[in-house]
Nucleic acid binder design. Structure first.
Lengths: 214, 214
DNA sequence: CGCTATATATAAGC
DNA sequence: GCTTATATATAGCG
């Protein structure tokens, strides 16, 4: 019996293609979208895995611009540009204050653990209850639904608090530094390299792992 | 006899890994190299297939900068910067992010660890060994010595980044409360390109693709 | 760097 | 967008 013949493959599966311009516009657009997504995801993984700082800017055939950046596009680009200007090369010997680092780290972690754990617990409950649908492995997007807005807000609140604390220290340090050493860039506002912190430019996109914007 | 038993697999093959900072420095460096190559190749294909203009700038954990650009990194970056700093912004669409809960939660604490640890190591090293050997690449981050503040800035940046991601997620959730699923996305417009400069020159890359230098 | 054995990314197609 | 069947990218190792 020709069962095999009846068991036709539902799709042809991925097909090999030549790496050359796709002539069909529609198909080209689709490919751009899919591959751009894949590219950004790869970049994201690269950053997380190795701690690399990466920025990607790409313009679709349709003319739209998409960008990815970690910590932020501007941050990476700025450094890149600053570096190529060549004047920036100096051997600034530094010995820097960093007592705060320890305590800060502690504080940061502690706060995180605290909140994280709390949320984790709540989440587990929900998952057990909600998991009626697909019981297969979950893909990132999915786990998100289990996080309530309230929980997210906790994260946000704690982060803002920590941010404020750190910024305050940054200011203190900046002042100390100014009076004793010289700074590398003109802007030791602590914003130049911070995504979203620089006020000299409109903030086009969110800091961090950003996708898009213009 | 039991040839099968002798026919053991030569290697375990690719193993699944968690997308989180690789602790071992050596392994991290290797992964960076491999994935950077893969990322650049993907970008290259994207350009050829869709005619997109793309630029990638990335800094290895070791501090070296690598870049990919088509038609050129500078070209793309210049356009990008031109478009974002002036009044040229008309049809600006706010776009977005895509980090999921798991990844985010992981990142929150990981990002912190990553940054703090790396910065500390970096600091120690830099002070002790200040010899930059390579001639074809330089430390655009030479001034990384300003770690006191630099570090704080990163902390802040990472927190803002996470906060923004979470907030966006929260907004999204609020709106999609009814839907069962949602997709990730990106998108935006703008208009620019990036340029890149780098160090160790890649050996092979399709014509028309530049690997700039600092 | 070269080799697998697998984990992933995706070309087609609905 | 969401699937399915494959083409690719790569983790661990020598």
């Amino acid at each position: 019996m020709d069962k095999k013949r009846m068991m036709q493959k539902k799709t042809q599966g991925r097909k090999k293609i030549e790496i050359k311009r796709i002539s069909d516009e529609s198909r080209r657009q689709v490919t751009f979208s899919k591959r751009r997504t894949g590219l950004f995801n790869k970049a994201s993984e690269l950053c997380v895995l190795t701690g690399a700082e990466t920025a990607i800017i790409t313009q679709s055939p349709g003319g739209r611009v998409f960008a990815f950046g970690h910590p932020s596009v501007d941050c990476v680009v700025d450094k890149y540009l600053a570096g190529s200007s060549s004047v920036l090369q100096e051997n600034v010997a530094i010995n820097q204050v960093n007592l705060n680092a320890a305590s800060m780290r502690e504080n940061f972690n502690q706060k995180y653990m605290e909140i994280s754990k709390e949320i984790e617990d709540e989440k587990k409950k929900k998952v057990l209850e909600d998991q009626v649908e697909d019981g297969d492995n979950f893909w990132w997007e999915e786990s998100f639904e289990n996080l309530g807005i309230e929980e997210l807000e906790k994260y946000i609140a704690s982060m803002e608090q920590l941010k404020d604390n750190i910024m305050m220290r940054a200011d203190e340090m900046a002042m100390l530094r100014n009076s004793s050493k010289f700074s590398k860039n003109e802007g030791s506002d602590g914003g130049g390299t911070i995504g979203g912190g620089d006020s000299t430019l409109p903030d086009y996109y969110p800091p961090g792992f950003n996708f898009g914007s213009g």
